[in-house]
């Protein structure tokens, strides 16, 4: 018991070392390493097919890695899958909500599955926090993309799991809905939850993340804070116009380098 307590509270929230995964001939992950500190927002940035979703699926016990070591909340994802599932929530790439149920029914269902007392009160509280009280009684099929995502994230919060995975939370949303989702994610982090989000939008990582890792061709090629990433480029030269490199510049510079080496 003592050992279990110590493994679940000490150390980083997520630890990944040498993670490898292939689908037949295709090597999706070729040795991924990173760590996520407790209570931080970590963005895994990469283009389509870079392997972001594969990483999330392995960390959320939906997929087994071929090699390497992955721990979530101190628990090995392979050997202690049940403990990992107690520690996490997954908001997948496609809104993981039940379209036929109402928003409130979705929340009540998850609260029941987490064996919470007063699932109705939990649902009403979350509807309020995510500005869905009015829509709560309506079927989710009638919701807008932004509302669906907010409900999705609200469902992930039930039971206060210490680690939350958000796989491309704003893909396919209009700009207004994106900002709604960003606010929801910031709200999570304020409560001390560790968030790992994947995104292909550079500004999203820039807006939300304490730390950013760029996943490219199955490897993490850069990992640091936004300031550290920006320092990778030579300092801005003062000519007539001063221009700071944006994260986008950094991204294409490092991605381009790695591509040439291969």
């Amino acid at each position: 018991m003592l050992v279990r307590m110590s493994t679940s509270t000490a150390g980083p929230a997520i630890q990944v070392r040498g993670l490898e995964k292939s689908y037949k001939e295709l090597r999706v992950l070729r040795g991924v390493d990173f760590e996520v500190a407790r209570g931080s927002i970590f963005a895994l940035l990469g283009s389509n097919g870079a392997g972001k979703t594969t990483v999330v699926r392995i960390l959320s016990t939906l997929l087994r890695a071929d090699a390497g070591d992955a721990r979530v909340n101190g628990f090995d994802v392979g050997a202690r899958a049940a403990d990992v599932r107690e520690s996490i929530s997954l908001t997948g790439q496609f809104a993981a909500v039940d379209e036929i149920l109402s928003g409130r029914e979705n929340l009540v269902m998850i609260a029941r599955l987490r064996h919470l007392r007063e699932p109705g009160a939990v649902a009403d509280d979350l509807l309020r926090r995510f500005s869905l009280t009015e829509a709560g009684g309506r079927r989710v099929a009638t919701y807008s993309g932004g509302m669906r995502r907010r409900l999705d994230i609200a469902m992930s919060l039930i039971g206060n799991p210490p680690v939350i995975f958000l796989d491309e939370p704003t893909t396919g949303l209009d700009p207004e809905a994106r900002i709604e989702v960003w606010d929801a994610v910031k709200e999570l982090a304020r409560g001390g939850t560790t968030v790992l989000l994947t995104t292909q939008y550079l500004d999203e990582a820039e807006q939300l993340a304490d730390r950013i890792a760029i996943l490219h061709r199955g490897r993490i090629i850069v990992d640091g804070t936004l300031a550290e990433l920006k320092r990778l480029l030579p300092p801005a030269e003062v000519e007539y116009v001063e221009k700071q490199p944006s994260l986008e510049d950094v991204y294409f510079a490092v991605v381009g380098d790695a591509a040439e080496k291969e």
Binding site: L62, R85, S89, L90, A96
Partner: peptide, 13 residues
Amino acid sequence: RSGIFERFQSMPI
């Protein structure tokens, strides 16, 4: 096909 299945599979149920 929907995301809800993966949500259930990643939950402690």
